[in-house]
Amino acid sequence: MEVIIQSLFDGALMGCIYALIALGLSLIFGVMNVVNFAHGNFVMLSMYFSFWVASLWGIDAVLTPLITFPLLFIIGMLVYYGIIDRTLKEHYTIQIAVTVGLMTFLGAITQLAWQSRPRALSYSFIQGSIQFGGYTIALSRLISAVISLIIIIGISFFLSKTWPGRAIRATSDDSDAASLMGVDFRKTYALAFGLGSSLTAISGGLLMTFQQVDPTMGLRFGLLSWCILALAGLGSIPGLLISGLIIGIGESLAMSFLGSQS
């Protein structure tokens, strides 16, 4: 019983971060219907950027998103205007092909730049754990989960209250009608893609506080976020959170009862 509750805690905390990763994908797929297979590799890329920034300038991993967020935003915009924009009118298989190409590219670039061995950072200042009636909660995970929640709430506020956010939602409902109302849909798409990619910067920074990174983990995060998206349904942020929790808890229960091999 104790194991179950402990796994529930761990899984729920992890689930919040997963939900944050899936939120980026949800923006990209929900708004422009682009099948993005490279999303997991964006997470991996931002983990590497976090590692880089943190080890180069001695910044703590939690604070690295301050630098990597704009960086990933710019990369996302460039990718949109350079690649995705040209394939919007094509069959969706073309988008799969191009994003898989991008996925391979990002994986290869990181392999070139940081070699294949796993990289990890030294302890972050949110290291440590708190005891809670016999259960242990890692402080880094708790704070990461809280930050994820705050970001998710912030994004949902951005989508519902601000003009660019509303433009994104309008475009995702009906891009023709939105462009009749004066929304430049290409700019909105670029914004959504940039935002979706840069959200991975935050999750990457948070993941680096307790995890290592290697060039093969991209596909795992990609599939994981597609799973969450499939479970949540499109355009529902509470749904994302709930399915993130389900996936996270399921994963941690399976890990503690069936072994990490499965």
């Binding site: 394939t87 069959h91 190409g101 991008l102 391979t104 994986g107 290869a108 070139l112």
Partner: peptide
């Protein structure tokens, strides 16, 4: 010589082919 370089070249070729011959 350089691990990963062939994948970079390969993926660039792949992206270019898809973009110009969809």
């Amino acid at each position: 010589e350089v691990s990963g370089l062939y994948l970079v070249v390969y993926s660039v070729i792949l992206i270019l082919v898809v973009l110009f011959k969809p």
